[in-house]
Design a protein around this nucleic acid. Structure first.
Lengths: 221, 221
DNA sequence: AATATTTTTTAGGACTACCTAAATTATATG
DNA sequence: CATATAATTTAGGTAGTCCTAAAAAATATT
């Protein structure tokens, strides 16, 4: 049941692979993983063999990797913890949403089912973390909402911001400075040749670059 | 200032040595440390050399070890975190005081000064943890209170329970079952030949063994 | 004080997770 | 489709932390 204990490093690999599986079709490559966990590809080759041995993923030489059921479940547990802790840091300790990632990266590796369950209750069983990402329940189920990337929204549509794709500090602080938060209403006025978009945010006209528009998750009203 | 980062293992050694220094006069022996951190003495010899190299302690071959100022300050930081997290677990997540030690042992190694400071504020800057142990402030200062061990209290004196010496689960559950908590008033009625004590607890007569009496910290009213 | 016992250290490995450099396989290009 | 390039793996090594067994030092006993 809850008896599988992975090392901190193993958990980071599993989490990285989980995230990569949602970005690419097919198996996840050695190089992609090495980018994500910031080690050399040769270290990844070592590690995926260890993880394959533990039935957390399927590894085929030169072909890449994908998580097994067991691996996905392990990933969900780490992600659940990460997102609950981020919520705690923002909701209870008043951190800004751009300050919590590194701390949550540490907290996500604390092993205690009781702790996670109680934390979840303490926070009021939140469905989404401060970046708008859904928090898996204790069984690892993820409610997916039909969010879209802002850059895919056609002209004249009105949407609300529900999350961010990459939650790097720079990007989050950029949004803060412009008063764009989760829940902010955005109307798409038009798109420019360079992919930038003209918007109406908080009733004021505002333009964002392609990069920003591609990093914002929104939902039709 | 806060730039010193120790590994989890190093922090555990420093913490263990700190605790042992408060129990024995003079330098702390290799064997005592190996008992405390649950490794073999030869591993301790390895590790104290590493810690001496980092100026956290003074090591003299065959003579034992004592913390430097730097080492004590590192120990206080870990202890501060441990006790704040224990307080969090009991006060906010409603854990029992006998359930929190192992989780706090993990949480105490999270590195973030901002987190500790905010947690401290969130908890209302508590002075004592759920076991009655004082929580060092951000500068590592420890307010010591003149607590005594129950077994040293003479007949007819009335005291209140302020803490426990060893906070093992068995002992804490024993106290819970008898409704002895921090704040409980205890009157010493008499002592027996075997070191056991006759008490008045919650207005009811109650006897404790020498072992229990030696593990309870009390303070004159 | 000599010897027995206990404590501590040394020597030599083991294991995890990393690295570099070289070899191999897969993919892309002409 | 042959070759150049890129991706991946293998081989061999390092650092941190642990271990066992043997040697050395300290302490206790007679």
């Amino acid at each position: 049941m809850g008896g599988l204990i992975l090392s901190l490093v193993e958990e980071n690999y599993i989490k990285a692979i989980y995230h990569l599986e949602n970005e690419v079709k097919g198996d996840v490559s050695t190089n992609a993983i090495s980018d994500e966990v910031k080690t050399k590809p040769s270290s990844v080759t070592d590690m995926v063999q260890v993880l394959a041995e533990k039935d957390l993923l399927i590894y085929k030489k030169y072909k890449g990797v994908h998580l097994t059921k067991k691996g996905k479940s392990a990933a969900m547990k780490v992600i659940r913890k990460h997102r609950l802790w981020e919520t705690f840091l923002v909701e209870k300790l008043n951190f800004q949403w751009d300050e919590v990632h590194d701390i949550a990266e540490q907290l996500e590796h604390i092993h205690s089912d009781a702790l996670v369950d109680r934390l979840d209750d303490f926070l009021g069983n939140p469905e989404y973390d401060p970046h708008g990402d859904p928090i898996p329940d204790a069984e690892g189920n993820l409610k997916s909402r039909n969010k879209k990337v802002l850059s895919h929204i056609p002209e004249n549509e009105v949407v609300i911001c529900v999350g961010v794709k990459e939650s790097g500090s720079d990007f989050l602080r950029y949004l803060d400075k412009r008063n764009i938060n989760i829940g902010t209403e955005i109307k798409v006025l038009g798109k420019e040749f360079d992919g930038s978009m003209d918007l109406l945010v908080n009733s004021k006209p505002f333009s964002v670059s392609e990069q920003v528009a591609g990093n914002l998750y929104v939902q039709p009203i």
